[in-house]
């Protein structure tokens, strides 16, 4: 057992070090010289090749699409991990649906689906895109779950698993498919780039929405909180 005084000294040390780090970070930010490489100008100069007119979408799905590809892989891994750690749960009693939430869900969920579609389309030329659309879809899934219209996910069926993976699959097929034309991975041809990006984003929006909703939906129902330890 560590004596209390040493423990207290350790706490003070950790606090002091964190404070020092904050000061060091602040000093470094004050002292930071302007960037040598002007990334916004480089992005603007080659924006025409990407088929989209919004720079953030162009960076996400063209210039740095490798990051996005790996990110979607991470998402899929996370939801697989969450489903794998889900213990066997005895059937719990689903709580009675809240009438207010139910009415709210009836009004807002169709609107949210429309908004998600709009965000997906708008991503090409203004703020929006697959991530925002997926987040709105996921929020509608969470709302439906809270309103008692969706059951908890025990084991997702084949369609659901396909939906979780479709974003990564489309992305991989497009990424590798362009190599048939003799270019490198993820180097879309300029004349097709806009359509390919929209195709990838549509798949991503579905998968991101299902994944984020699934991370919430895979939690057992409140009545079923006794998990078998075996």
């Amino acid at each position: 057992m560590i004596p209390g005084s040493i423990k207290r000294a350790g706490r003070v040390l950790a606090l002091g070090l964190s404070l020092g780090l904050a000061l060091l970070l602040g000093w470094a930010m004050f002292d930071l010289p302007p960037a040598e490489i002007r990334l916004p100008e480089q992005v603007a100069a080659r924006l025409a090749e990407t088929g989209v007119s919004h720079p953030v979408t162009a960076v996400l799905l063209d210039f740095r699409s490798y990051d996005t590809l790996l990110e979607v892989g991470v998402l899929l891994l996370a939801v697989i991990g969450v489903l794998a750690t889900r213990a066997e749960v005895r059937d719990g009693v689903e709580p009675a649906p809240e009438p207010v939430l139910l009415a709210l869900a009836r009004v807002t969920v169709p609107l949210m689906v429309v908004v998600a579609g709009y965000l997906l389309w708008a991503g090409a030329h203004r703020p929006g895109g697959a991530f925002q659309a997926g987040a709105v879809l996921a929020a509608s899934g969470v709302l439906l779950r809270l309103a008692g219209r969706l059951p908890a996910w025990a084991t997702p069926g084949f369609t659901m698993r396909l939906g979780l993976a479709v974003g990564l699959l489309i992305f991989l097929i497009v990424a590798a498919g362009v190599m048939v034309g003799g270019v490198t991975l993820l180097d879309y041809p300029s004349d097709l780039a806009g359509g390919l990006i929209l195709l990838i984003e549509a798949g991503l929006a579905v998968s991101i929405g299902l994944t984020l909703a699934g991370l919430f939906l895979s939690a057992p129902a409140p009545g079923a909180n006794r998990e078998d330890a075996s």
Binding site: V43, V56, E71
Partner: peptide
Amino acid sequence: DPVPQAMVLTGIVVAVCATALALALARR
């Protein structure tokens, strides 16, 4: 600068997933 904005957008989604996985592990 659009580049850090895109990086952060990627990072936010990964952070949400990592948090959900951490919560599932803590629950287990």
